[in-house]
Nucleic acid binder design. Structure first.
Lengths: 321, 321
DNA sequence: TTGAAAGCGCTACCAC
DNA sequence: GTGGTAGCGCTTTCAA
């Protein structure tokens, strides 16, 4: 490459990086650019970051479960915002199981920042990452982690708003769906806690309703509906709400007449159901905001971990409640 | 690290990589392991691949749009299969726009293989990647790309099966929904072509129905339904099918009595609709199979590009058709 | 059985 | 303005 342009490797580096401290003549620049084009030259990221002592790579684990469209959009925004701040965002996929092993795997890439949604990172993992040179570790989920910045998505607020809404609509016997999928526990149990706290001291009752994400499970639950005598149900999220609504309607339960239903996360399908599904939406921050947090943390790695709690919720009242 | 264990850096490398060509005494191994543990030592992937001249990183672009659960599961399978084959899978997210610029950005990571779903990679991009040392470039989508291996998902087969199914059920005036989202064109236009070819020469008519993914757009389309006088509609996919079904039912059109509806991609919501939604599912290969293709291509980079076409489809006949 | 040293591709410092 | 060169962390060959 340097040979083809008839200059030294250093000059090539100067030209391609537009190094301003050094002034290169226009003809030389041109020759270098042409040679690069012709050879299809692409710089070697590994060599560059080895030399620089750091990369501008932000690592996130690739989501393991199909995420909702809301979250997907948030992720997309976040990535392009980080891109605009000149970070390279990389989702680490593959066999790496969650836990401190995963942290070690991420650390091998020497990322400048690590962004972990959900659980799956303990204080040990944070320590490993920081020692490997990560200047910012940000968790994103229901629980903060020792030593890391956190965007805490307060799922109790979702449960609280849902239960409160049902109570205000005059309902007194409230069921709360608990998905049996173990991966959802981290979300469902704070939602349950929130619902419980909203009803505490009101005289209304709360009934836990474990439910697998399958039609027959929903049908079995619906079959017990008379015995349960619930006049309202918070269905964990809109998908479960749809599942359960369907089963209840097939079972002859009128919605919202006999039982009010409310979901969460404002999925696209809510307004398409009949009755249109009421839902609770947690106000995710804009991707830009989280990107800005990351950038701030990178610039000032010494600062105390920021902890932002998102507990703003919107109840979208449609017809089912 | 080497200092703490009182050995040379070479010895450390031997121990941590279990290099079999060299025999290290047990006490030394132990000392090294302990020091590594204590320091939280994590190898430096960039340095390693710089030295080795190649990495075992497989790069894919991060999906820009919310993907269906079917595809998400496929992706997850693929990633863990590649992980088991000892590749590191990395989804490249961020500002990198599609096109040859994206290929250059990926090439900076010097991946051993690149996997690109959808369009967004031209022959030029393939060339860049190969020159940068990628031993396998695999595209995954409706169209193969010059010079790259391809898993061709033949979307025409989906449209063909849907239209044929409707025809066999006695329908003669078939509408085909075309999403207005530009990102879906690569899927919708071959689906349309397939439907057209299934009806060619049968005397049945085909009507194109452009539709935005919004309730009011669907309502407007439903309002024209009498004039259109269609007795069947292939709704592009299950989500659009749900949207349109809802609008038609609100408009008093009985399903499937007056109009049969069929979707595609067998989304989870299909069986929850009333009538239960018929759908067409493209038989994606198992993630393992694609992982195996990648591995084969990496081991034998000289081989001619493989081109596998997936055109196996299943019509899931429920109640809406 | 262990250590010394070269060199992967790149950038930054210094000499010309 | 441009070129020489050291050195980032690692693996591997060769010598001790």
């Amino acid at each position: 490459m340097a040979r083809l342009a008839g200059v030294s490797r250093a000059t090539v580096s100067y030209v391609l990086n537009n190094t301003r401290a050094v002034r290169i003549s226009e003809p030389t620049r041109l020759r270098v650019r042409e040679a690069a084009e012709q050879l299809g030259y692409v710089p070697h990221a590994a060599a560059r970051s080895l030399r620089a002592g750091h990369s501008r790579t932000v690592v996130m684990p690739a989501p393991a479960f199909p995420a909702g469209p809301l979250y997907t959009r948030f992720l997309g925004e976040l990535q392009s915002a980080l891109g605009r701040l000149d970070y390279t965002v990389v989702q680490y996929g593959g066999a790496a199981p969650y836990g401190d092993d995963a942290a070690r795997a991420w650390a091998e890439l020497r990322p400048i920042a690590v962004l972990v949604p959900g659980p799956g990172l303990g204080p040990g993992g944070v320590e490993v990452l920081k020692r490997s040179g990560a200047r910012a570790v940000v968790t994103l989920g229901p629980e903060p982690v020792e030593g890391a910045h956190a965007l805490v998505l307060d799922q109790t607020a979702v449960g609280h708003a849902a239960a409160r809404h049902l109570y205000e609509r005059g309902r007194r016997r409230v069921g709360v769906v608990l998905p049996e999928e173990p991966g959802l526990r981290i979300f469902s149990s704070p939602r349950l806690r929130g619902a419980r706290s909203a009803l505490r001291g009101t005289g209304a009752t709360l009934t836990e309703l474990p439910l697998a994400c399958a039609e027959d499970a929903a049908a079995r639950l619906a079959a017990r509906w008379d015995a349960l005598a619930l006049d309202a149900v918070f269905a964990y999220d809109d998908a479960y709400a749809m599942l359960l609504s369907r089963a209840l309607q097939d079972h002859g339960v009128t919605l919202p007449g006999r039982t009010a239903v409310i979901g969460a996360d404002d999925l696209m399908l809510g307004p398409l159901l009949r009755p249109r599904l009421s839902t609770v939406r947690l106000e995710l921050p804009a991707g830009q905001d989280l990107a800005a947090l990351v950038d701030r943390a990178v610039r000032d790695p010494g600062a105390a971990p920021e902890r932002h709690t998102v507990r703003g919720v919107t109840v979208v009242h449609r017809e089912s409640s």
